[in-house]
Every structure is written in C-alpha cells, then in structure tokens.
Design a protein around this nucleic acid. Structure first.
Length: 221
DNA sequence: GCCCAGGTGGGTA
DNA sequence: TACCCACATGGG
C-alpha cells in the first residue's frame, strides 16, 4: 500500500479511538525543554517527580536554573535517573539561553527551524530526539519526533525492516505527510498512547489494539 | 534479583 | 560507519 495512505489511515484510526490529543504535559515552553532532557531513557512518572521538585524550588526558568547550586539541582532531578548528567545538561541549556537569548527559550525558537535545530544539537546532552521534542512541543515547528515508541510501533506494523536510524524513520513520516506541526504533535502523542496501552514490549498480544487490522502481530497468535 | 524505561556522548575497530 | 559502554533511579 502507498506509504502516505498507510500513515494517514494509522493516524485516523488512532485519532478515532483516542480522540483529539494535544500532547506533552508542560506549562511553559521552557518546561517542555526541561522535560525533554529529563525524560532521556526513563519513564515520565520519574520525570514528573523531578519536575515537581523543580517547581517547588521555583527554578523552572533559565535564570533560576542558572543560579541554583549544582548539588541542589542534582538532588531535585535525582528521581529521573542519570542525575549528575541531567543536572549538568540543564545547567548548560540555561546558561546558553541566558547568554545568547535573553534568558528566553521563545527567543531561540522564534528562528527558522533548521538553524534552531542545529543550535540545539550543538548543546551537550541535546540529541536529535530532545532537539525535535523542543522544536515541536515548545516551539510549534513542524518536525516529527522519533522515539522508542515510534520505533516500536513502526516495527510492529511492518513499516520498517530492522532498526532504522533516527533520520530515516523521521523522513518516513515527514516525506509522506504534510508539514503540519499540529498533526505531528497529535500523531506522536497517539503513538505514545497506543504503545503504552497495547504495544508494550512484553505484551505482544494486542486484543484491544485500534490498529489490529493493520498490524501483522495481531493475527499471529 | 533482573529487566526495562519517551537518549546521549565518548571510545574503539 | 558500526558497535560498545557509562550514565542511575524506580517500577513491574
């Protein structure tokens, strides 16, 4: 089947099942960026604890994050794991924003997508997924976010053979769908939702999966 | 006790 | 380029 049609049908089925999703739980663009760094290789529940700590300490802004003592910051983000690395990465982001963008992520994100993406990627601790999450969910740039869930679902559905690299899987979506930030936002949120519900690694049976008729795994038990 | 989670960077061949 | 490995906590 035509890739565009297939991707569109998957989106429609998920949308119909879950309803409209406007995704990424955060109150400000900067909080999105903080969450994007904290969520690296961990679960969102752990990230929520860390963000709660940051909120209670009133350091969810570049200026405040820049000021806070590294040892205190490490303690706050500890629940999210890799706490020394992540505290350092948050510091670097805050430092960069304060030095070059008036302490406001929105100023950086106001630029054109590609240069902003390159700038984000130049920060230590910001890789492609983190950069694209910030671009899409904090800045409304039309980039498709590829994460472990995206890999898992595409593999399940037979859209990819073997492990595709980040850029190739991103291109699969971006080359076949209109560059629409709202749709990319919703699509990625739906992928996360369906993976959490029925597409878990240890649960190959997908009895209630809204994508059952698309999924080769569904008929193989 | 073991595996895993919404990655990234550094080292080696 | 293609693999390893470290980084660390908490849930199932």
């Amino acid at each position: 089947m035509d890739t565009t049609l297939r991707l569109t049908q998957i989106f429609q089925r998920l949308s119909h099942h879950y309803g409209p999703l406007h995704w990424w739980p955060a109150e400000t663009p900067f909080e999105v960026a903080v969450g994007a760094i904290l969520t690296q290789n961990t679960t969102w529940t752990q990230v929520e604890r860390a963000i709660d700590n940051l909120r209670q300490a009133d350091v969810l802004s570049p200026a405040a994050l820049r000021r806070v003592a590294t040892t205190d910051l490490e303690l706050m983000v500890r629940p999210a794991g890799f706490f020394r690395q992540k505290a350092h990465r948050l510091k670097l982001l805050a430092e960069h924003l304060c030095t070059f963008h008036d302490g406001r992520l929105e100023v950086l994100l106001a630029g054109p997508t590609e240069p902003v993406r390159r700038e984000l990627l130049s920060l230590k601790g910001v890789g492609p997924e983190t950069a694209d999450s910030i671009l899409l969910y904090a800045g409304g740039h039309p980039v498709f976010v590829v994460d472990a869930y995206t890999h898992r679902l595409c593999s399940r559905l037979g859209l990819t053979a073997g492990r595709m690299d980040y850029q190739a899987l991103q291109a699969l979506f971006m080359d076949h769908l209109p560059a629409d930030a709202a749709q990319f936002n919703a699509y990625h949120g739906l992928i996360v939702q369906v993976c959490k519900d029925v597409c878990r690694k240890r649960s190959p049976r997908c009895p209630a999966c809204p994508l059952a008729i698309d999924c080769p795994s569904a008929g193989s038990f």
